[in-house]
């Protein structure tokens, strides 16, 4: 790269000239556009806004619901008093049947995996990783250069 030495005289001169430039007048439509955008934002329904902008009673309600749901989920996962059999014997039987089918399938897959040499699996994983990164890269590029562009236009 051509790394030219700075010229203090020219720097001072151009700086001085640039500072004499007056401000440009903003277009007359700018204020109207900003206020239209502010009004459009204010008219959005609560569910299109960030949680912090929700009405207070909806914030409280959503918080209570979230805490209640989380608590119930935690109680179901960790509590031993409630089992699937006590809730529904028929459902428990079906789950058990599906479980045994899954077990059989897993045994079959394990036997298959052991039968194929490890180097083949490594190659397959490499191909899959390559495909994944290619898809992610193309998707990101498409979003950044096409979708964002279209939104702007």
């Amino acid at each position: 790269m051509n790394n030219q030495p700075p010229d203090p005289g020219l720097e001072e001169l151009i700086g001085r000239k640039l500072r004499t430039l007056p401000e440009r007048k903003a277009p007359a439509s700018l204020r109207a556009n900003v206020f239209a955008a502010i009004r459009a934002r204010a008219a959005r329904p609560w569910y299109q806004r960030a949680w912090f902008e929700w009405p207070r009673h909806l914030q409280v309600l959503s918080l209570v619901l979230f805490l209640g749901f989380s608590g119930a989920l935690g109680w179901l996962i960790t509590g031993h008093e409630v089992t699937l059999t006590s809730l529904s014997p028929v459902l428990a039987e079906r789950v058990s049947s599906v479980g045994s089918e899954i077990g059989w399938f897993l045994n079959l897959m394990t036997a298959f995996v052991r039968a194929v040499p490890a180097s083949y699996w490594m190659a397959a994983l490499g191909v899959l990783a390559g495909m994944l990164f290619t898809c992610a890269g193309l998707g990101s590029a498409f979003y950044r250069f096409v979708v964002l562009d279209l939104r702007k236009d």
Binding site: R24, K25, A26, L30, R31, V34, F35
Partner: peptide, 18 residues
């Protein structure tokens, strides 16, 4: 608040646009 903001805009709109 809107009136105040309008005054604020009038004070700074040329600087921002420039």
């Amino acid at each position: 608040q809107l009136e105040e903001f309008e005054t604020f805009m009038m004070n700074y709109q040329n600087m921002v646009f420039t």
